[in-house]
Design a protein around this nucleic acid. Structure first.
Length: 285
DNA sequence: AACAGAATCAACCGCTGGAGG
DNA sequence: TCCTCCAGCGGTTGATTCTGT
């Protein structure tokens, strides 16, 4: 009886909640509320009858769209992309944390950026990103990097094909040339981009821990230096596609600068998945 | 110009953790 | 100690826009 009434009240409440795109008038109400009380007491907006939105929805709207310091409608700059890639390697999918390093960007922005990037990578690899064994027990569709156990089937060959398809010449995999930390060294002084192949792991190599994904681990210095050692990780220099090679013959192995990889005309920014992580922001001065 | 597929964006959902009663 | 509420986070989805054919 009481339970039934309570449920009906709850249903009425749910029916009264508005969802979907925000109207300008709603935004104005929300902005006024924040002006008066600050960005808090979100649920009071509904309880006062100002809006038929949940507090959660109001907060999200403010954080993602209405906050005054946001870079709305601006694509991620090359620097921002580098930062996200680096920080994702360090922190994992801690989008809120990563967003704090990027002025005017929200966790949603970072998340969407990364998601797009992962989709692109998945497409390049001609495979979908299967759910990873990442930290969460939740199911994941596309945010996680490929799980460790299916990497060997990809090997480097898919990537090589991708480059070959772009009329790039292949470069013998040989001497390992690791890039200098990008933010610490001027781009023009970074002669080569290391392009690690997916390693064939020793059978006794420990499985991924909770919260680890393959690419993140691959990018971790410890992975390269301590766990597998460089010899286990074949590395090739990324060849330059003729399309963005300013001059020189097809025989030359000219360097690729990082910015060229992030350029709009060269989508495989995914290459950064294969590159050593950048220095941690704690080292930035 | 029309269509399809990809990319982007905005918003929702479920869960977690902290604060307070 | 338990419960409830709230804020915040990460993952997911659906709509819209862009781009290539």
């Amino acid at each position: 009886m009481m339970e039934g009434k309570r449920r009906m009240a709850h249903d009425d409440e749910l029916r009264d909640i508005k969802k979907g795109p925000w109207k300008v008038e709603e935004d104005e109400v929300l902005i006024n509320h924040v002006k008066k009380y600050g960005p808090r007491d979100w649920s009071s907006i509904r309880s006062k009858g100002l809006l038929r939105r949940t507090g959660k929805s109001c907060r999200l709207r403010w954080v993602n769209k209405l906050r005054p310091d946001l870079k709305t409608g601006m694509k991620f700059s090359a620097d921002e992309e580098r930062t996200v890639i680096d920080l994702q390697a360090q922190f994992g999918n801690k989008w809120a944390k990563i967003a704090t390093y990027l002025q005017g960007r929200t966790d949603n922005d970072v998340k969407n950026f990364w998601s797009s990037r992962q989709k692109r990578l998945a497409r390049i690899l001609h495979t979908s990103t299967a759910p990873s064994s990442s930290k969460s027990h939740k199911t994941t569709k596309h945010l996680q990097t490929p799980p460790f156990d299916f990497i060997p089937s990809l090997k480097a060959t898919k990537l090589e094909e991708e480059f070959a398809a772009s009329s790039m010449e292949t470069v013998p995999f040989g001497e390992v040339v690791y890039p200098s930390p990008i933010s610490a060294v001027p781009v023009e002084q970074q002669p080569y981009v290391a392009f690690p192949q997916f390693p064939m792991l020793p059978p006794d190599y420990p499985p991924l821990l909770e919260g680890q994904d393959f690419i993140g681990r691959l990018g971790a210095p410890s992975f390269l230096d301590d766990e597998l050692g460089h010899s286990a990780l074949g590395t090739a220099q990324v060849p330059i596609a003729p399309s963005f090679q300013a001059s020189g013959t097809s025989e030359s192995h000219d360097a690729v600068d990082i910015d060229s990889l992030i350029d709009d005309d060269f989508p495989p920014i995914d290459l950064f998945d294969q590159i050593e992580p950048l220095p941690s922001p704690s080292h930035w001065s």
